[in-house]
């Protein structure tokens, strides 16, 4: 029987996480102002998302990285940068 060795891997790199979150937001139809979509973008102030949209974005981020973000943490994610920091701090994200 074959044995597979998975690499230690560990946390994802910042650039990769940022790229995947940006791609996800590019595909989110409520982001109307694509020019403001930068790694520093704030979901509400820059991207014009309301609070329900923001919940949907955070849920989509959960799906993208196959993790479940606890309510307490999810409530604190209001910008691309905050989301990137959170995901890179999660060893289970992949």
């Amino acid at each position: 029987m074959g044995v597979r060795f998975y690499s230690a891997g560990g946390a994802l790199g910042k650039d990769e996480v940022e790229g995947r979150i940006m791609d996800l937001l590019k595909g989110f139809d409520k982001v109307t102002n694509q020019e403001k979509l930068t790694p520093a973008a704030h979901f509400a102030n820059d991207l014009g998302l309301d609070s329900l949209d923001t919940v949907e974005v955070v849920m989509a981020i959960e799906e993208e990285f196959s993790i479940e973000i606890p309510d307490k943490e999810a409530d604190k994610l209001h910008s691309v940068q905050q989301a990137v920091e959170y995901i890179t701090s999660q060893p289970d994200a992949h």
Binding site: L52, T54, V55, E56, V58, M59, E63, D71, A74, D75
Partner: peptide, 14 residues
């Protein structure tokens, strides 16, 4: 309300 919305979306996903 936002937490409730999140719980609902999560439940639907499952």
């Amino acid at each position: 309300a936002l937490a409730a919305y999140r719980h609902l979306l999560r439940a639907a996903r499952i």
